[in-house]
Design a protein around this nucleic acid. Structure first.
Lengths: 117, 117
DNA sequence: GGATTGGTTAAGCATCTGCCTAACTATCCG
DNA sequence: CGGATAGTTAGGCAGATGCTTAACCAATCC
């Protein structure tokens, strides 16, 4: 993709990085500052800033500056979107996998009569 | 990240692309072949192949060759991992957001006494 | 057997990512 | 005021990504 314009793109992309997931895990324990977030991480402050910006653009984090420190907090809404997509898929295909035929069908050559409903 | 070694990295990365999500949505209707998957997409067959390989590496799709066609099917397990991570986060922070103090705390400067438990 | 259909491999390219360092601004402390 | 602390901006670089075209292999089909 040249640029990830869709919200889901941004959310999943944000979640695809272990550093960013670590940030979210830390934030799920409570709001905190940028340098506090950066402390345990093996990288420079600017790098952490960039990760936070990615999270913020994805709508996973909101932040506000108070005095000279920036406080970051989680925002649940974006997660719900990602969750919603996954849930929809899980429902669809777990239902389907329950129908025994699908696996056999796969072994047999697939799309012969794949979508029997 | 230089390479995404962890499973969650691979799964979320795979989900971050709209083409790949479209493939999964199509596959959630039933197993099918590579060229069938490629037909509605505005890109070359090799490009679709690469997307499928990404999905397969992430454990979201399994495929097998039968005759000269390759049949692709969904695999639910990897999704459950991604889902699991999201659920854990949601539980943590939605519980937290229920505690009214957190939002105020954020507006007030954050990590002052952030993790009150 | 030769053309077709379905897939695969290889090479190349523009762009994006994640990181760094250096330099700069904006508080807050004494 | 002067120094320390917290964050921000800018520029740059190595490696990953998403795509393309061209060439190639392998089952079918006639």
């Amino acid at each position: 993709m040249l640029n990830q314009s869709e919200p889901l793109d941004r959310v999943f992309h944000a979640l695809a990085d272990p550093t960013r997931r670590a940030l979210l895990e830390r934030l799920s324990l409570g709001s905190t500052s940028v340098s506090e977030l950066a402390r345990p991480l093996p990288m420079s402050l600017p790098a952490v800033l960039q990760h936070i910006q990615v999270l913020e653009t994805a709508g996973l984090v909101r932040s506000a500056k108070v005095g000279r420190t920036r406080s970051c907090a989680l925002q649940a809404e974006a997660l719900r979107q990602a969750d919603g997509w996954i849930q929809a898929r899980r429902r669809e295909w777990e239902a389907r996998l329950d129908r025994l035929g699908d696996y056999l069908e796969t072994l047999n050559g697939g799309n012969s009569d794949g979508q029997s409903e």
